[in-house]
Simulated scan of single mutants.
Amino acid sequence: MRLAVTYDVSDDANRRRVYRTLERYGAWRQYSVFELDVSKSQRVELEDELESHIEPADGDRIRLYRLCEACQKATTDLGTEPPGEQSNVI
Rank of each mutant, 00 (worst) to 15 (best):
M1G: 12
M1I: 02
L3T: 02
A4S: 11
V5A: 08
D12G: 09
D12S: 14
N14M: 10
R15G: 08
R15M: 06
R17H: 14
R17I: 01
V18Y: 03
V18A: 07
R20Y: 07
R20P: 04
T21P: 05
T21D: 04
L22A: 07
R24L: 07
R24Q: 14
R24G: 11
A27W: 15
W28D: 05
R29A: 02
E35A: 07
E35Q: 06
L36Q: 04
D37S: 12
D37L: 10
V38C: 09
V38W: 04
S39R: 06
S39E: 09
S39D: 04
K40S: 13
K40N: 10
Q42F: 05
Q42A: 10
R43V: 06
V44N: 04
E45C: 01
E45M: 06
E47D: 02
E47W: 01
D48P: 03
E49K: 09
L50V: 06
E51C: 08
E51N: 14
S52K: 12
H53R: 09
H53F: 14
H53K: 09
I54D: 04
P56L: 04
A57C: 06
A57N: 10
D58Y: 08
R61T: 13
I62N: 00
I62K: 03
I62H: 03
L64Q: 03
R66G: 08
R66E: 15
C68M: 08
C68K: 06
E69H: 13
E69R: 14
K73T: 12
A74M: 12
T75L: 10
T76M: 09
D77M: 08
L78D: 04
G79Y: 00
G79Q: 01
T80S: 12
T80N: 09
E81R: 11
E81Y: 07
P83I: 00
G84R: 10
E85H: 11
Q86W: 05
S87N: 11
